[in-house]
Write a protein that binds this DNA or RNA. Sequence first.
DNA 1: GCCAACGTTGGC
DNA 2: GCCAACGTTGGC
Length: 138
Amino acid sequence: MNYWLVKTEPNTYSIEDLKNKREDVWDEVRNHQARNFIEKMHPGDQVFVYHSGKDKAVVGVAEVVSDPYPDPKSAAEEKWLAIDLRYKNHLPRLVTLAEIKIDARLQGFLLVRQSRLSVMEVSHAQAEVLLELAHSKK
DNA sequence: GCCAACGTTGGC
DNA sequence: GCCAACGTTGGC
């Protein structure tokens, strides 16, 4: 089982939308590095959901429920990939980008190092820190 | 509203 | 194949 993080702009699509649908396709990712991460996803993998824009925080967790498949919103020859996600839960407390940035244990986190990347892998160590922060009182 | 980072496009 | 111009993302 591996951990990932996906970004979304909540005005366009938020974790509430995913929660209401229960399950949804995560598509329209048009970046090669992000595509390469999607390619490595498997059912059962855990996905942190991050809200960009106003929130700038990790807000919840979803689960991968399909293998990667051709993005239905792209031409077949373009080889973009999509995945199906199922809403799992909101974090007990959201973990802000500001907190992540000042935590020494998260220095190498791609979320900080590559601000424009929309799908990324999260190491088990990083996932542990995120979950610990989410369960701690501020 | 501005700007840094980064990807894409097109002229040469 | 290089690089300037331009567009987009996303933080500040």
